[in-house]
Design a protein around this nucleic acid. Structure first.
Lengths: 273, 273
DNA sequence: TGGCTGACTTTGTCTGACAAACTATGCCTC
DNA sequence: GAGGCATAGTTTGTCAGACAAAGTCAGCCA
């Protein structure tokens, strides 16, 4: 009868690793209210004794939580539970892009679903402070037409404030994940803004409509901007494809690209991997 | 002029930790094409030499990536790069719920934005296999009205197939994150399904409309289901609030056990987290 | 041929130690 | 008395070496 359900609930019988146990234990401490955002965890040696594991194992578990952005260690100070909306998750998203499991065009499809709705929410809910911050970001963009790096930083700030203005933490987290992942792969997004001034004008229009509480207008403006950016992306992808098919065979040699490795990793040589 | 941009680009000058370096190094290996999904990483001792770090530090870095679901270690076998859509990220989402940084109602607002659009996409793109799998999940639900655990497992399976049918990896990842997080906090979602049969009927209707390629109908059906579930959630939240306000004062002693609180966890048995 | 044993590989965990970063206290100088 | 500096103490970061556990695989024997 319930064969389908059986198959689903069958867990892999692998014994739980200490790392997982540490994470679950700390989770339960949060659930019980003993730990909350900002709390300091007991020192590592003490915590290791409490949990009955060695310090190294404990640290591996903590590192996992750090990667997720859920805790933050300050040397000589302590380890704290951190308020983090999408900090760690964006790294996850970035990897999906790296591994080509997620395509840029797919992200734009997602954005076209999410962001117009977010714009409508922002038009209804944005506080004066939100509007001020978005305005500041817009001004920052305007004064940096000639400096791509800084222009992009301001644009990212605008988008983050935009997400925050919708007054929904789940949405804010999702958007931050996407934006952070996109910003990291800036190679791909930077050339898309052929004309900073035109890009800036579209953003300014979005802000103006939000400030006027014009939900429908803001929704349309965001969708327009995304459509425009998507068109550029499509062109860029096609150009790159042509480039690859032409140059692909020539540059078959392994990545000899000089990359500045951090000092501590100088001995790195992974050719045999 | 560009003070705003300056403030944004100012990084915290904290020296990079080995863990971060390890992660970046492996990232660059993926970027250069030396590693891809399914690749086996070199053994830990060897990799440690390559990166010029000790095995313990390397392991901490790897654990971080494991938590994100990006690599998977098999004892006695090796460590592999894993294809993971939202496996690690869902844990992140769950924590946000735990820490009360994200509220359940906010997730429902997000779902009401996302899922109707996804339903429309699924109606256009679902393959026969997708429809079969959703059908199987629906059947599984039907035969488990009396077994809540298994019913929920089947419902989760239905939603995952639903997300997959939209044929967009970014969307699939987002949905899996949400569903996994909601499923973990099942305390909250289980009682919401007052009547399994009614819940099942709504799901069946969604599937039928997707199978008929009725995008608009599927969109409406999903929105209806979400509205219904949200109503139940609102009632449940209100009931819980009443309960808290009655029982809350009695054990209102969070600050008294401030620093020494974890002390009672000494020798805590890990297995019962 | 088939199954079992043993060596080998690889990850999991533990112990102990020292370095680095930050805090806080107390001393010394002005 | 006030302020700067040095020192001790706390806490995380990193390293080294060792053994256990788990899985693979070749080779031996019935």
């Amino acid at each position: 009868m319930s064969a389908f359900a059986e198959r689903l609930t069958t867990q892999s019988a692998r014994s739980e690793t200490v790392m997982e146990a540490v994470a679950r234990r700390i989770e339960s401490l949060i659930r019980s209210g003993e730990l909350r955002v900002g709390s300091r965890l007991p020192p590592e040696p003490q915590l290791a004794v409490m949990l009955g594991v060695s310090r190294s194992s404990l640290r591996e578990g903590l590192k996992g939580l750090m990667f997720l952005g859920l805790i933050k260690a300050r040397p000589g100070h302590g380890t704290y539970i951190q308020s983090s909306l999408g900090r760690g998750a964006s790294r996850h998203f970035k990897w999906m892009l790296l591994l080509r499991e997620v395509k840029y065009l797919e992200i734009y499809e997602l954005r076209k679903i999410l962001e117009p709705a977010v714009a409508a929410l922002a038009a209804r809910r944005a506080s004066p402070e939100d509007l001020e911050k978005m305005e500041a970001a817009i001004l920052g963009m305007k004064s940096n037409f000639a400096r791509p790096e800084q222009y992009m930083a301001c644009e990212l700030a605008f988008h983050e404030e935009f997400g925050r203005a919708a007054k929904n933490a789940a949405i804010e987290m999702m958007l931050r994940m996407m934006y952070a992942a996109l910003a990291e792969g800036r190679r791909r997004t930077l050339p898309l803004i052929a004309d900073f001034e035109s890009n800036w004008r579209r953003h300014q229009r979005i802000l103006r409509l939000i400030a006027r509480r014009d939900a429908a207008g803001a929704r349309r403006a965001v969708l327009d901007d995304l459509r425009y950016a998507e068109t550029l992306l499509r062109k860029d992808l096609k150009a790159q494809e042509n480039f690859r098919s032409k140059v692909g065979e020539i540059q078959l040699e392994p990545s000899k690209t000089k990359r500045k490795a951090p000092a501590k990793l100088q001995r790195a040589d992974l050719k045999q991997g």
